[in-house]
Design a protein around this nucleic acid. Structure first.
Lengths: 224, 224
DNA sequence: TCAAAAGTGTTAGATTTACACCCATGA
DNA sequence: TCATGGGTGTAAATCTAACACTTTTGA
């Protein structure tokens, strides 16, 4: 079985752009690179694609190693393949974007790997072409948020409309009118109001909503 | 220089989804596979990424080999990396989507490589996961056409509004109202009416328009 | 003379935007 | 009692969608 033996092989890695939502801001999880070359530089977390796993599996494995989380929302961002993008060797990397609820993520694991949540504004220079990856990931998020139910991945199961609005504002990078936002949410059937009240963030208490996945699957069209 | 020697390498290829516009239809260029495995199956045209070229360069090289054309509109569609996607070996492929003006493409070259223009409706089953690639490419085209000046790549430098409308209809897969379409085009500054008249497709003659790239670069925002 | 494609405006309906005040409660 | 965030409706402006006839000319 050596159909392609005349062609050369390359290393392929995956890099994970892990977004979370905290204190009204979209943040991403970065760490200091643990291997040469580039040891100590701020970097996305990545790993090589093994011979016995698909690229999607590799991305999920890397994310699982890091966060202990499975079945996380994850989408491919694209392949990055400049010859000298990695200072050590020729490596083609496929970027993946993951959205997680920060509260579900064990902070001990974060510390164990020396990772930090940083906002886009406070992002230090990153290793190799990782900043480009982040930029492309954000562009894709912005495009997708109005036609794909992304935002719930960044929130707990139960959330208030203000939290949801804050996610939209963080991703889109612009303020949204509260009344107009709520009007539009009301028109979306798969965002359900529950009887529960959140008393943590406000004195008066705010109604908690949930994303009804089943209702979405039955009618997967909306526009915010 | 063997930073990553403990990890395994894989073959990486590029596959080109080449779209053209002909007889009011969006067509793509496919050929019968010339190598094992899968020899004789309908397939996109592809090639392996060499050690000394970026993935974008590889895609451009493959397209150039096939069409003799350079500086063609080309965008990455995404990486495809299931383990057994290729029946022979483990190959990760990065799909690229190119838009060309069919008339600029030397038909002798097409025949030399045994390629055919087929419409989506008449597309035969394709090798490996190439149908998925085509599907994703079309989805991306549809998303991009209203915010990126794609359509001109499928047309000659000078084109009539009816031709342009046909391109939109072919990509979007729906009919567009002629008057509304022309109204919106008039509002786009970088689509310029020339003094020239096309007498080929109509007896009366139709005004020829052109895409003003410079005007677009100065003000690269529009919405159709 | 007629078939075939080019070209042109208006109006109703839908969608989007802007905008300000009262409510409930814990500190 | 007051500061904080929750919650609500309306009207103007904009955008979108539907729609039909006249023009030109080569065959």
């Amino acid at each position: 079985m050596t159909y392609y033996s005349e062609y050369s092989k390359v290393w392929v890695s995956v890099d994970c752009i892990i977004f979370g939502f905290e204190k009204g801001q979209l943040k991403l999880l970065i760490g200091k690179r643990q291997m040469d070359p580039g040891r100590g530089e701020w970097s996305l977390y990545g790993g090589f694609v093994n011979a016995d796993e698909s690229i999607d599996d590799a991305a999920n494995r890397v994310l699982y190693e890091l966060t202990g989380m499975k079945k996380v929302y994850m989408k491919q961002v694209g392949a990055f393949g400049e010859i000298d993008r990695d200072p050590g060797e020729r490596v083609i990397s496929i970027a993946y974007c993951a959205l997680i609820n920060v509260k579900d993520y064990d902070d001990k694991l974060r510390k164990k790997y020396g990772l930090e949540w940083v906002s886009k504004e406070n992002m230090p220079p990153l290793y190799s072409d990782h900043e480009q990856m982040v930029k492309k990931a954000i562009t894709l998020l912005r495009q997708r948020i109005s036609t794909e139910p992304l935002s719930f991945n960044l929130l707990p199961n139960l959330f208030t409309l203000t939290q949801l609005q804050n996610v939209y504002e963080a991703i889109l990078g612009e303020e949204i009118d509260k009344r107009n936002f709520r009007k539009r949410i009301k028109a979306i059937d798969f965002i359900e109001k529950t009887e529960l009240i959140d008393k943590v963030t406000s004195k008066r208490g705010a109604a908690l909503y949930r994303f009804n996945k089943k209702a979405y699957k039955e009618y997967p069209y909306f526009k915010l």
